[in-house]
């Protein structure tokens, strides 16, 4: 208690000038017959700041545990070796599904033998490649199971860049520490580094609000220009096939239901 107290007092001292200046006369008059108001305000401020510190600084430290990836990976070096950019390893399968994090199969062509002498490379080949064990990568962008997300719709149909959501991970030379949310088991990158949920770049967060933000912007664009995005066109087309002649205006944005339903994105 005492350490926290001192802390709080210090902060209270700092903040006292603006907070106290406006409110103290009023409180003073009100509280006159009941005793001094000073300590009361002080306690309020102590409580206020203690909880602010708890919420903004201590809580995130407690919430996330730090984990190292099983082995390190250098994106820059690999990007120099491949021709197709990200899609060389994070590719789309023939049926349009997205392969996600590469499996050993894709690495094995080059990494059958140890390449170079980095300890991570040696560990990779000895522990995983030669034993035929998949590397248990910790995936920064893994969404909860209930989220339905189609990469192909965004990348192939809408022509979006990987960077828009994933940032410049392709330019990294090593993998950052994986911070795991102790409650949900997911990466900190979903909520974003900022515990307050603030972001500067589109790739700073991956929550539903962030999806919605972009979708809202795109819809607004369409409405303004009358231009159809590929998604919109696809929906129109499907609706046309399923029930020809029905007007689009009553249809929602879901391909499956033709309505703007929750389960377009939530399984």
């Amino acid at each position: 208690m005492s350490a926290l107290d001192n802390n709080a007092k210090e902060i209270a001292g700092d903040a006292g000038s603006d907070g106290g200046a406006t409110s103290s006369p009023e409180i003073n008059t009100k509280e006159q017959d009941k005793g001094p108001a000073g300590p009361v305000i002080l306690f309020f401020i102590v409580g206020l700041f203690a909880s602010l510190i708890l919420g903004w600084i201590i809580f995130p430290k407690l919430l996330y545990s730090k984990k190292k990836q099983p082995i390190d990976f250098n994106h820059v070096m690999h990007m120099a070796e491949v021709e197709d950019g990200c899609e060389s390893c994070h590719f789309f399968r023939e049926d349009g599904t997205y392969s996600g994090v590469p499996k050993l199969d894709q690495c094995i062509d080059c990494h059958e033998e140890i390449q170079g002498d980095s300890p991570d490379e040696i560990k990779f080949v000895e522990e995983y490649v030669s034993k035929g064990r998949e590397v248990p990568w910790l995936v920064y962008s893994r969404q909860p199971d209930c989220v339905f997300f189609s990469h192909v719709a965004h990348v192939k149909v809408a022509g979006m860049d990987c960077v828009t959501c994933h940032g410049h991970i392709g330019e990294s030379e090593s993998l950052k520490i994986y911070e795991e949310n102790r409650i949900t088991g997911y990466s900190r990158d979903i909520w974003g580094k900022s515990i307050g949920g603030f972001k500067k770049n589109t790739w700073d967060r991956m929550k539903m609000d962030d999806c919605a933000e972009c979708h809202r912007k795109m819809t607004a664009n369409i409405e303004r220009t009358g231009v159809k995005t590929p998604t919109k066109r696809l929906i129109d087309h499907l609706v046309d096939v399923v029930s020809p002649g029905t007007s689009m205006s009553e249809k929602g944005s879901s391909v499956q239901t033709e309505r703007g339903a929750c389960f377009v994105c939530h399984k």
Binding site: K34, G35, P39, V40, I41, L42, F43, F44, I45, V46, G47, L48, F49, A50, S51, L52, L54, G55, W56, F59, I195, G196, G197
Partner: peptide, 19 residues
Amino acid sequence: RSFLSFLLGGAAGTALSPL
């Protein structure tokens, strides 16, 4: 009163924090 005030401050601070 001080204690209640402390709690009140705590509540306000908590509400203003992301917790």
